[in-house]
Design a protein around this nucleic acid. Sequence first.
DNA 1: TCTGGGGTCCTAGGACCC
DNA 2: TCTGGGGTCCTAGGACCC
Length: 458
Amino acid sequence: MRREPSILHLDLDAFFAAVEQRDKPSLRGRPVVVGGTGGRGVVATASYEARAFGARSAMPTAEARRLCPPGTAFLGGRFAAYRRTSEVVMALLRELSPLVEPVSIDEAYVDLAAGDHDLSVAGVTALATDLKARLAVATGGVTGSVGIGTSKSLAKIGSELRKPDGLTVVAPGQELDVLHPLPVRSLGGVGPATAERLAQVSVKTIGDLHRLSLVDLTSLVGQAHGAGLYRLARADDDRPVITDREAKSVSAEETFARDLTDPARLAAEIDALAHRVGTRLQRSGTSGRTVTLKVRRYDFSTLTRSQTLPHAVDDPRQIAEIAHRLLAAVDRSGGLRLLGVGVSGLSPYAQGDLLAEALAPAEDAAVEDAAVEDAAVDEDPEPVPVPADPAPGPAVVAWYPGQDVVHPDLGAGWVWGSGLNRVTVRFEGPRTAPGPVRTLAADDPALQPADPPDWTTP
DNA sequence: TCTGGGGTCCTAGGACCC
DNA sequence: TCTGGGGTCCTAGGACCC
């Protein structure tokens, strides 16, 4: 908590619907619902006119159709238009301070202390009033709600208090008076599950929360979460405004109009998702070591399967290969409702960066130890030649993770990772069961590429 | 015609290492 | 000859946010 109300939070009102009403005058004053319009769509934004009939974000669009009267507009969304408008707004905020943290396309924090401003309550009130007026002009009528306080949590709560087109300044010293009557759900990080746990010990408001001891709170909701809520209930929040944070993962997923069982369709969907993820990674100049497959079954049960590779990948083919393998080990009977593919463990350098590979030989070393042990057990008379340092000269072999290979003695397998002059192969027994891992010389003539398995058959 | 898509953070168990 | 104990990595799931 700071001494002055220097943190501003801006939340654009019913943003997607507001842009639609701005661009199409016939929609003004009418209920507008933006979101998925297919059978399995959900509402992204409902205009205030639609909210009057009960339409809400995250509600199935089918339900919103039942609630809203004839004449309600159901729109699929025009994200390029939303993005352009959002950029106009973010640019306005950057005129106030260099410290702007976009939380999402329609929300941001600003640290006013990094600008040249009068940080009295009267000063920031005038600043916010002026900002709202300029916002409406610059966006052609989109409005926003502003909260200002001594911390991020107070500013965020302030912007929620009077919507739409609201302005709330929480004066220093008034934080607990504002917080304590509010329901615990007002705090960031308290969702349905946490609220239910707290309700079971009769904690409904932030004031109730304030009366819980740290020990009781952490035993109730966990160490990190409990400690965080303990501080938030006391308005003890000094989190900084962060202008740009590095992405930690990149993913794509798709819910199908109808559950899929056809292996060829599933395989094609994996390829398409991997392509979206890979191209986004490549555009941002990153790659990641962990590939995750997400599966939602016909009954909405959801599971993830992941695999961490010795090297980072960004190639759609390689990501797809890993994902195919992960999917092959999942029970698909009854049909799949959703598939997702993600890459995490991101590193800032791109795949194939030889310098980075040379600097990071640690994972390979661990694998080599395992391979040497295996070789001893098998009485392999020929120890695998593994130089301590990468040999000089160009890398000539193009093994890639997920690639299928075959070896006359070791059987069928697939590339788990490859270094400058080594290739690590996981040899399989049954199709997806993890078999032994062997490290071979990358130019071992016995090791040959193989036709990939046919993922289109069950 | 129930329940999107893109993220972040935390927890917990097992493997492995020193 | 009762069962160590941290630390890190990996995997899976869950809660939460917009």
